[in-house]
């Protein structure tokens, strides 16, 4: 009985894997591809691996470690990628309607420039 439940859980997880693939193909830029890829593979791998663990109970320990590892690391790597992609937003043609991060960067740059000018004036 648990074997059949596990197989169906794996099937649902596989559908989410397929969804992540379709998302990578259809989405227009890297940020949105990341949205589809990260979320769908995380839930997909949880369901797929736990399904395998239910089919063969002696696999369950290792698949649980693998699931914890993926849930912990997958958002971190996609966060690092998103930050890297933000540096290239004009290149990759990403449409970002309000871009609060770019505004904050510009504000910080202007602030540092004005303080530098003040210091220069002070030095004179």
């Amino acid at each position: 009985m648990t074997a059949i439940i596990g197989a169906f859980l794996s099937l649902i997880g596989a559908l989410f894997f397929l969804l992540s693939g379709i998302g990578l193909i259809r989405m227009p830029d890297a940020f949105n591809r990341m949205q589809a890829g990260t979320k769908a593979t995380t839930l997909g791998s949880i369901l797929f691996l736990i399904g395998i663990g239910l089919q063969k109970p002696e696999y369950l320990g290792r698949t649980i470690i693998l699931v914890v590892f993926i849930v912990l690391t997958n958002p971190v790597s996609s966060n690092a990628l998103a930050r890297a992609a933000h540096g290239y937003r004009k290149h990759i043609g990403a449409r970002l309607e309000p871009d609060a991060l770019a505004e904050a960067d510009e504000a910080a740059e202007v602030a540092s420039k004005t303080t530098a000018n003040k210091e220069a004036v002070h030095g004179d």
Binding site: L72, T73, V76, N79, A80, R83
Partner: peptide
């Protein structure tokens, strides 16, 4: 510099 998130996750991993 790397983000705070990566640094914290590194400490755990």
């Amino acid at each position: 510099e790397a983000t705070e998130i990566l640094r914290t996750a590194t400490g755990i991993l």
